[in-house]
């Protein structure tokens, strides 16, 4: 009786062990996960910082302050969504971060930049979760407000 009951017990243990270690084996052999696709909001933060620099160069302090505020809020959301990612200033997507701060800017360029930001935010609006839709809406409307300030 004892021998008979031990047999199946051992084999069950072995089965359990095998079942438990299988995922481990998979975890040890699979390559590290591919990097997540870039957060679509990261570009908007880069754009907002660039606009702030342009507005500063053009002597438009109110626009510079508002776009700096936009950059801060958007970047905070990007960092919140992906806290393990590299830090904001270092992680700007390639091709968007290399531009040095402009040494000069005109009000016309600032208006164009604000209109481009409105368009970019509007295009993203349909694809984001609701809390981001609120953030984007305020940023887009804020850019429209800044254009009105300059009109």
């Amino acid at each position: 009786m004892i021998a008979e009951s031990r047999g199946p017990l051992l084999s069950r243990r072995r089965v359990l062990l095998a079942a438990a270690s299988a995922p481990l084996a998979v975890a040890c052999t699979t390559p590290p996960p591919a990097p997540l696709p870039p957060d679509p909001l990261a570009d908007l933060a880069v754009q907002a910082r660039a606009d702030a620099a342009l507005a500063t160069a053009a002597g438009l302090e109110e626009v510079a302050a508002a776009r700096t505020e936009h950059a801060k809020l958007i970047q905070a959301e990007v960092d919140r969504a992906r806290p393990s990612g590299p830090s904001s200033s270092a992680s700007a997507p390639p091709g968007t971060s290399a531009a040095p701060p402009p040494s000069s800017g005109t009000p016309e360029q600032v208006v164009e930049a604000l209109q481009a930001a409105q368009k970019a935010g509007t295009e993203l609006l349909a694809t984001v979760p609701p809390h981001r839709a609120g953030l984007l809406g305020s940023v887009v409307a804020g850019c429209a407000s800044l254009v009105e300030v300059m009109s």
Binding site: E62, E69, G137, S138, V140, A141, G142, A144, S145, E148
Partner: peptide, 26 residues
């Protein structure tokens, strides 16, 4: 939201309030 923000800005400009713009309307 955009329409309201633009009109609020317009009225603030009319009244001479600074800053006239709303950075984060809503």
């Amino acid at each position: 939201l955009t329409g309201c923000a633009v009109r609020a800005t317009r009225w603030r400009k009319t009244a001479g309030l600074l800053p006239a713009g709303l950075a984060m309307p809503g």
